[in-house]
Amino acid sequence: MTIAALLAGMFLATYLTRASFLVFGHRLRFPPALKAALHHVPVAVLTAIIVPEALAPGGQVDVSLGNPYLLGTVVAAVVARLSGHLLLSLGVSFAVFGLMRWW
């Protein structure tokens, strides 16, 4: 993969969204249905990344509590959900992951 192509495409994909109204202004209207759909994008994309990585780290399926990726991810989610504190949940989940991996 060429880095130049990677960055050029990512730049366009990012900048076009941000420049849309500010630069191209009046000719655009934001469709309300798209706005409602966008609301679901972060949860959909992030879950889609998490699930295979947590249940099959490195491509090896391991659905057990002995899988540090799975248990660590569950801990991160539970602590974040209960405390609402992002950095706290990361600290706790990194500790769990580290202990399981190297103890």
Partner: peptide, 22 residues
């Protein structure tokens, strides 16, 4: 386990939103 740092971050970001059914 830096790959873990990424998915843990993602999980912590979305978990607080999982209160409503949608």
């Amino acid at each position: 386990g830096l790959d873990f740092a990424m998915i843990a971050t993602f999980a912590a970001m979305i978990a607080p939103q999982l209160r409503a059914p949608t």
